[in-house]
């Protein structure tokens, strides 16, 4: 269940390009950590290296350690597929499997893990859809394709799909950026709900959102063009938004950036 991350001296590369420099960060369990910072500073890159999705890109690699409850997910004997099974991810654009039914979408991760029992799959589908606040909207059309839902519903379907496997951590990369304000609120409520059970890391460009949903905020910045992104500071969200210790952070959150 909910686990903690300890990121130690993490350097991330795309081929020869050094994208992120030496991140040190602790992510406590049952807690929401927000990543904020200007475009291109490496928020998504760091997030994707927390479930080993970064290395899916040809030439991409990382150096350093990412400890999940003390176990390095980059240790040589660790299978990235196993890592991704225990660390769920929600993407910027909803990406349900378009030809699969709503229910099959939700239980896709369980099926991959080898669960075949129909009753169990049905139960998990209902529990996850309820968990994602989508059950009432789709319970009469579970067999219809997931591609037929609205954007906000699709994103909640993706959240349901991610929590169906009861991951240790849930990573979200700007999960609301493609959604309208109502769907955004629905997902923010959901995040507040989910943090009782899950460790959550969320990337957002929306300061209010970071302030509303997160307990701790990490501010990333670029020192210059072609330079790697840096973690500037991390602290309680309240502290970051009221009294940050770095000038750059203050400039960024008050909109005096660049």
């Amino acid at each position: 269940m909910a686990k903690r991350f300890d990121i130690k001296d993490l350097n991330i590369y795309y081929g020869k390009f050094h994208a992120v420099n030496s991140v040190n960060l602790a992510v406590p369990p049952r807690n929401v950590t927000a990543f904020i910072g200007p475009s291109g500073c490496g928020k998504s890159t760091v997030l994707r290296s927390l479930n080993r999705m970064h290395e899916v890109i040809p030439g991409a690699r990382v150096e350093g350690k990412v400890l999940l409850d003390g176990e390095d997910i980059y240790a040589s004997n660790v299978d990235p597929v196993e890592v991704r099974r225990t660390i769920g991810m929600v993407f910027q654009r909803p990406n349900p499997f378009p030809t699969m039914s709503i229910k099959d979408n939700v239980v896709a991760g369980l099926r991959l893990a080898g669960v075949k029992n129909k009753k169990q799959l049905d139960d998990v589908a209902e529990r996850s859809l309820r968990g994602a606040n989508l059950w009432n909207e789709v319970k009469d059309r579970l067999d219809k394709p997931g591609g037929g839902l609205s954007g906000g519903q699709q994103q909640r379907l993706c959240i349901a799909r991610a929590i169906a496997v009861q991951p240790d951590v849930l990573l979200m990369d700007e999960p609301c950026s493609a959604l309208d304000p109502i769907s955004t609120l629905a997902i923010e409520d959901l995040i507040t709900e989910l943090k009782k059970e899950y460790t959550i890391v969320i990337v957002t460009h929306n300061m209010q959102q970071a302030a509303r949903v997160s307990d701790q905020t990490a501010f990333f910045n670029l020192l210059g063009v072609g330079q790697p992104g840096q973690l500037i500071e991390v602290d309680d969200t309240e502290k970051i938004f009221s009294n940050p210790s770095q000038k750059a952070t203050e400039d960024y959150i008050s909109g005096r950036f660049g």
Partner: peptide
């Protein structure tokens, strides 16, 4: 679509 491929991989496929 890369989105779909990544969606599947991120589920532990």
């Amino acid at each position: 679509p890369v989105m779909q491929i990544e969606g599947a991989l991120a589920l532990g496929a």
